[in-house]
Computed example of a mutant assay.
Amino acid sequence: MPCANPVLDGRLIRSAYQRALFKGNVLDRTVRAVAHAASLRPTVVMTYWDAVRRHGPEHLARLLADAGAAGIMVVDVPRSEALRWHHAAHDAGLSTPHLIPRTTDEADVPAAVQGASGWLYAPASSGLTGFQGPLDLTALEAFTERLRAASALPVVSGVGISSPDLAARVAPLVDAVVIGTPIVRALLSDPGPAAAVTAAFAQALQPRIGTAHDA
């Protein structure tokens, strides 16, 4: 769900947000998109607290739940608002995945995962979305293990997984992989190949997700 100041997102997704905001009717368009997606597959909305605050946590949670959403991941919920948000989402029947920054100290992990449901999101990079540099997979594996020690929830990863090859290398470390910028890039330039881009990532991931963890 677009917002005006997506502090964790890079240039490309910021550009997509700006285009969506310029078109207007963001909430209505989001609800329609969620309803369509949820008719095909379980759907989780990602957004920022500013959008939740603007529309009202209880109202937004109920609206997206009624559209068919399975959950909402708000990547920057203020600690002072966390209890209200979790209650609003729970009352609407929504899961509340948490993004856990890579900079989270080990002592702070239990507090960071408190109230999460659905999954924990462990960024593959500490950079913004769209990062295309090398990934420290050893550090990512150590981080995911710390999260698993603190919670029984599945651990997913995204941010910086810029190619199917990288996705295949990250996949054994986690329970799922989130691909954003490569698909948004395809949609912004020429929507036609977007399905093929998605299929390439799915093909790279299919036999590998969680294999190392399962072993």
Rank of each mutant, 00 (worst) to 15 (best):
residue 58 E to P: 00
residue 191 P to N: 09
residue 125 S to T: 15
residue 137 L to V: 11
residue 110 P to M: 08
residue 63 L to M: 06
residue 59 H to F: 10
residue 1 M to S: 15
residue 173 L to P: 00
residue 151 S to G: 12
residue 207 P to C: 09
residue 161 I to D: 04
residue 4 A to D: 05
residue 81 E to T: 06
residue 123 P to A: 07
residue 45 V to N: 03
residue 166 L to A: 07
residue 163 S to E: 06
residue 110 P to K: 13
residue 125 S to P: 02
residue 36 H to G: 09
residue 84 R to A: 10
residue 189 S to L: 10
residue 159 V to H: 05
residue 63 L to I: 02
residue 139 A to P: 05
residue 1 M to F: 12
residue 95 S to G: 14
residue 145 E to S: 14
residue 45 V to A: 04
residue 130 G to E: 01
residue 186 A to L: 07
residue 22 F to I: 12
residue 58 E to H: 04
residue 126 S to A: 15
residue 87 H to Q: 15
residue 200 A to T: 08
residue 163 S to A: 13
residue 108 D to N: 13
residue 211 T to V: 15
residue 77 V to Q: 01
residue 43 T to D: 02
residue 50 D to Q: 04
residue 167 A to C: 12
residue 190 D to S: 10
residue 70 A to M: 01
residue 17 Y to S: 14
residue 174 V to P: 00
residue 46 M to S: 11
residue 215 A to M: 10
residue 94 L to H: 00
residue 108 D to R: 14
residue 106 E to I: 10
residue 193 P to V: 05
residue 10 G to A: 05
residue 16 A to R: 04
residue 126 S to H: 14
residue 7 V to K: 15
residue 53 R to C: 12
residue 61 A to G: 03
residue 19 R to F: 02
residue 150 A to Q: 06
residue 86 H to T: 13
residue 127 G to Y: 01
residue 65 A to T: 01
residue 73 M to Q: 13
residue 154 P to T: 14
residue 204 A to F: 03
residue 1 M to W: 06
residue 138 T to I: 08
residue 14 R to P: 01
residue 149 A to G: 12
residue 121 Y to A: 09
residue 173 L to R: 02
residue 193 P to Q: 07
residue 17 Y to T: 08
residue 100 I to S: 07
residue 160 G to W: 07
residue 23 K to C: 12
residue 163 S to V: 10
residue 133 G to M: 07
residue 84 R to L: 07
residue 11 R to D: 15
residue 57 P to M: 03
residue 84 R to G: 03
residue 148 R to H: 10
residue 179 I to K: 05
residue 99 L to Q: 07
residue 190 D to H: 14
residue 75 V to P: 09
residue 184 V to K: 02
residue 38 A to N: 09
residue 60 L to H: 01
residue 82 A to W: 11
residue 114 Q to K: 11
residue 102 R to L: 11
residue 18 Q to P: 02
residue 18 Q to W: 05
residue 211 T to C: 09
residue 171 A to F: 06
residue 34 V to R: 01
residue 188 L to D: 06
residue 190 D to N: 13
residue 88 A to L: 01
residue 153 L to S: 15
residue 118 G to M: 10
residue 113 V to N: 07
residue 71 G to W: 08
residue 70 A to R: 02
residue 90 H to M: 10
residue 190 D to M: 08
residue 43 T to S: 01
residue 187 L to P: 00
residue 123 P to T: 11
residue 153 L to Y: 12
residue 206 Q to F: 05
residue 107 A to R: 11
residue 110 P to N: 11
residue 146 R to S: 12
residue 62 R to M: 06
residue 38 A to P: 04
residue 120 L to V: 15
residue 63 L to D: 00
residue 71 G to H: 04
residue 181 T to E: 02
residue 129 T to E: 02
residue 4 A to R: 04
residue 177 V to R: 01
residue 141 E to P: 00
residue 43 T to N: 02
residue 128 L to C: 11
residue 91 D to C: 05
residue 131 F to A: 11
residue 44 V to R: 00
residue 64 L to T: 00
residue 152 A to E: 14
residue 55 H to F: 13
residue 205 L to H: 09
residue 143 F to W: 08
residue 154 P to S: 13
residue 215 A to S: 14
residue 13 I to N: 13
residue 134 P to Y: 03
residue 20 A to N: 03
residue 56 G to S: 06
residue 168 A to Q: 05
residue 141 E to Q: 06
residue 93 G to C: 02
residue 85 W to M: 00
residue 168 A to M: 07
residue 42 P to H: 10
residue 82 A to R: 15
residue 178 V to E: 00
residue 116 A to D: 05
residue 137 L to H: 03
residue 166 L to D: 09
residue 82 A to I: 04
residue 34 V to S: 00
